[in-house]
Computed example of a mutant assay.
Amino acid sequence: MYYIVETEKSFTQASTDLDSAVKRLGFGVLHVHDLGATLRAKDIAFDEECKVFEVCNPAQAAKVLATDMRLNMALPCRISVFTEKGTTKIGLIKPVQMLSALSQDAALVEVAKEVEEKTIQMVDEAK
């Protein structure tokens, strides 16, 4: 269900490269949640880094919503850059498996396949 790769890049460089790959592949970055900074700002001890990129392709999102409006709760796609014990990783939850758990509609599975191919390509390019 997960697609996670390790990279030799720093957390900051991997984050920058992911942002560029998202845009280059026709998606937009709606928001970036810096979970590490948020937790530390709340005085919670958290030594790792973690940014969650909310990414979206409006045409694909519109197809999903036109088929089943309830799936708005599964959008946008999220790709994370994070550290774990000194290693930088980039990962996502695969859209096909996630949407298949929520709907059996064949058209949605096709959209999810297209999105999954692109989001995995983003991760691989940022690696």
Rank of each mutant, 00 (worst) to 15 (best):
F46P: 00
K9F: 13
A62Q: 13
R40I: 01
E117D: 13
Q13W: 06
K63F: 05
P76F: 04
K42A: 15
H33S: 15
D124S: 05
I44L: 15
K89Q: 10
E48M: 11
E54Y: 06
C77M: 07
C77H: 04
L35G: 10
F53R: 00
M122L: 11
D105V: 08
E116F: 04
L18M: 07
A66Q: 13
L18F: 07
E114P: 03
G86A: 08
L65T: 09
V52A: 14
K51Q: 11
M69N: 13
I44M: 14
V55L: 09
A14V: 03
H33D: 14
T16G: 08
L35H: 13
A107D: 14
E8L: 08
M69F: 09
M98K: 09
M73D: 04
T7A: 08
A101D: 12
E48A: 15
L75M: 12
T83S: 08
A106E: 14
T88M: 04
V29C: 06
L35R: 12
E110H: 11
F46L: 13
E49G: 06
L25Y: 06
T16F: 03
M122S: 05
L75C: 04
A66W: 03
S20W: 04
Y2N: 13
F11W: 05
T7C: 08
A59V: 14
L18D: 00
A62Y: 15
P58K: 07
L75N: 01
V55K: 04
I120C: 13
V55Y: 01
R40G: 05
V22P: 01
V29D: 02
F53E: 00
A21V: 02
V81N: 00
S10V: 07
D124A: 04
K63L: 11
E8N: 13
A37E: 11
P95I: 03
V96L: 13
V64H: 02
T67W: 05
A45S: 14
I93G: 03
A107Y: 05
L30P: 06
E125L: 15
K94M: 12
L18P: 00
A126D: 02
I44C: 11
I93C: 02
V96G: 01
V109L: 12
S15F: 05
I90L: 15
A21W: 00
V52M: 09
V29N: 09
K127A: 14
K94W: 09
M122N: 02
G91Q: 08
F46Q: 08
F53V: 01
D68P: 02
Y2T: 11
R40H: 01
Q104I: 06
K94L: 13
K127G: 13
P76H: 03
T119R: 06
L71F: 01
K127M: 11
E6V: 10
L99N: 02
D43Q: 12
A37L: 08
M98I: 08
F11M: 04
F53L: 01
Q97N: 09
S100D: 15
V109M: 12
L39P: 00
G91F: 01
Q104D: 11
S80H: 05
F11Y: 08
V123L: 07
Q121C: 07
K94I: 10
P76A: 05
A101G: 15
A37W: 02
V109D: 07
P95N: 10
T38Y: 11
V55Q: 05
P58T: 12
K9I: 07
T38L: 14
V32C: 03
M73V: 09
A107G: 14
R24L: 06
